[in-house]
Design a protein around this nucleic acid. Sequence first.
DNA 1: GTCTATATCATGATAGAC
DNA 2: GTCTATCATGATATAGAC
Lengths: 215, 215
Amino acid sequence: MAIESEATREKVLKAAERLFSKNGFSGASLRQITEEAGANLAAVNYHFGSKEDLYKEVLLRRVRPMNEERLTLLAQAEQLAGEQPLPLRAILDAFIRPLLSRATDRAPGGLSFLRLISRELADPQPFLFDEMAREFDPLVKRYTHAFAQTLPGLPPVDLFWRMQFTTGTLLYAAARQHDFERISSGLWKADDVEGCMRRLVDYCTAGLGAPRSAA
Amino acid sequence: MAIESEATREKVLKAAERLFSKNGFSGASLRQITEEAGANLAAVNYHFGSKEDLYKEVLLRRVRPMNEERLTLLAQAEQLAGEQPLPLRAILDAFIRPLLSRATDRAPGGLSFLRLISRELADPQPFLFDEMAREFDPLVKRYTHAFAQTLPGLPPVDLFWRMQFTTGTLLYAAARQHDFERISSGLWKADDVEGCMRRLVDYCTAGLGAPRSAA
DNA sequence: GTCTATATCATGATAGAC
DNA sequence: GTCTATCATGATATAGAC
């Protein structure tokens, strides 16, 4: 039945998300995953074809809506600004929020997904590289253009680096949401994602707009 | 013989560094490693005891001198500055250089080590967590103090975040040195590590010293 | 110290009954 | 669609010869 099939599929995806997030692609076995899902070992191959394809689906089903959200928020901000170039803060907020907000989502997968996507982008799986590049390409192009408009004097190579630095900052913040409370020695509480986001935007706004030092 | 023993040990460490870096801890097998090293499978257990202990040694033998260098550079900069608090740039340079300079080292392991240590810090292996914490603790304390001196008005929680953001920026830059040339579409050449470092310092200096926005 | 040989177990994948 | 059973392979680790 389609209904039961969907239920099993969903349970497997959920368990896979958690275990891939915790142990990485090669560190999580299909046996662990199907056991935690309460499904049969053979279900993975039936529903997804292979472990790699399961991993791909775990990621893409969350990445796609997230990136659409990022593009939508940017478009909305631009409409609001009219002819003016967007303030840096506005671009960054549109870029960061759809990712970090998932740290508090009641929706499934929040923290797991953050850790997973951070690991994948900082340390890509070769078999997924092309598909991820295709998925992120419109986003990169679109935001590069927005940043370039707001920072007209910045040479392309510097903009490239500053966007990379911003990405690194964001990914690390996302990857470690799950243990910042512990390592901050009580300075920060895990439910204050807004506080993290505000500080992240402060930091990256300054970094992107920094003066350039002499070579 | 002690000499041959050392040679085998060294060959295994070198191969392990490359393969752990490329495929991660669980993605690299002892078979791969010993084969690439031209050593016997049993050599790993003889010399290191277990796969986990091999991994630990691969990391720590490079982390220890790197972190000593960071502490030394900071002390030297402080001596140079006398009574004055250090400029942000000087602290950052001392923090960043001993890591990123390894991207060009003729010495073995440069790029591999960068990728490996970045992955380990952004996504720690549980079995190594305590030992890494112990190894990095003096560094964190020392640099936190230096930053706090130079940024006297900054509340501790904000300093915590900004140091985390700086760490994330640095680790991502380190992790991807090996393919920035490719993904920059020709904007940047891999031999220009100085250029990367200068831009990284520009970015983080601005971020650490950024104005704080209202909550 | 280094090797061969092997023990023991986990892995991803699939064939075929239901 | 889901199950059991199994295959072929590869994993870490170790015992014991040399």
